[in-house]
Every structure is written in structure tokens, then in C-alpha cells.
């Protein structure tokens, strides 16, 4: 079947099998920031935003998001310029191996769009589904908070 995906503003018209998962389709299209590990909706590394909301691409059929807007980390950074959450993650040393980071950045971004001033608990709850095997989450929670401040600051200037 034929579907259309709008990924980070790029339109892709592709032929897929109705049983194809969004994860593999995105990776085939070159969006390699979308990562696969558990394949069973438990780890969050395959998170992408569909119409602005985080979902797990490993357990979503590509066919079910036909015509919708998808965002991956590639769409957040602009060329060399990193997204404020990415900056903050670097500053806080919140990335070790980095495998979980794209999922965390996207989940954090969705949270901040909805709630620009999240409490520590809000951040913890939002990142509930993103597993990181290297850090203890503290640094990542701090990074999201810091990014939130930076992003609010931008708005007021």
C-alpha cells in the first residue's frame, strides 16, 4: 500500500506492507536517530513524535500514521545548532553511551511544549517510559529543567 509521511517537514510517499512498523520505515528512510532495542514497547529508544505527541515506533504500524506529521531528533537540531535540550544534556553530562538520548530529547520536547514550566515530578513522570542503562536519570532530569529555563528565557527576550 501507498502512504504519505511528513517527517520533519519532508514529504515521503512510500510503498509499504500493511504489517510494516514505523520504526523500520523511518530507519530505511534514513532517520537513524530512531533506535531500536527492546522491540516490545518497554524502553523508549524508538520514541518519535506523531502530531507532537511521543509514541513508540517499534509498536506502531506505519500504515496507522499515514498522512500524519512525524518528528525525529534530526528535525530538532538545525544544522550545527543543537536544540536546547540537547545542549543541556551535554552540559549536564547526561549522555554516556548516548543510545537512549534521542528518545529522551523527543519525550522532553513534547513535555516542554505542553508544560513549559514542569516540576521535578512532571519531568520524572514524563520520562517514565525512557530507560537509560548508563546514567541514574538525575542528570537527565536536571537537563530538561535547565532546557526549560533556557527555552522560556528565549521567549521573553
Amino acid at each position: 500500500m501507498k502512504i504519505t509521511l511528513n517527517v520533519n517537514g519532508n514529504l515521503h510517499e512510500i510503498n509499504i506492507d500493511p504489517g510494516d512498523y514505523l520504526l523500520e520505515i523511518l530507519r530505511d528512510l534514513g532517520y537513524k536517530s530512531v533506535r531500536r532495542s527492546c522491540h516490545s514497547a518497554s524502553c523508549g529508544t524508538c520514541t518519535v513524535l506523531v502530531n507532537g505527541k511521543p509514541i513508540l515506533s517499534c509498536s506502531t504500524f506505519a500504515a496507522s500514521v499515514d498522512g500524519q506529521t512525524i518528528e525525529t531528533v534530526e528535525g530538532l537540531s538545525q544544522g550545527e545548532k543543537l536544540h536546547p535540550i540537547q545542549e543541556a544534556i551535554l552540559e549536564e553530562g547526561a549522555a554516556q553511551c548516548g543510545y537512549c538520548i534521542p528518545g529522551i530529547v523527543l519525550t522532553g520536547e513534547a513535555l516542554l511544549r505542553e508544560n513549559p514550566e514542569p516540576s521535578d515530578d512532571d519531568i520524572k513522570l514524563a520520562l517514565n517510559g525512557n530507560v537509560c542503562r548508563c546514567t541514574g536519570y538525575e542528570s537527565q532530569n536536571r537537563a530538561i529543567k535547565k532546557a526549560a529555563e533556557a527555552m522560556r528565557g528565549d521567549d521573553y527576550e
Partner: peptide
């Protein structure tokens, strides 16, 4: 229930 990703679907 689950995480935001799960609850969104």
C-alpha cells in the same frame, strides 16, 4: 498506566 508514550496510544 505505562508511560506517556503508551498512554498516547
Amino acid at each position: 498506566i505505562g508511560s506517556p508514550q503508551i498512554r498516547n496510544r
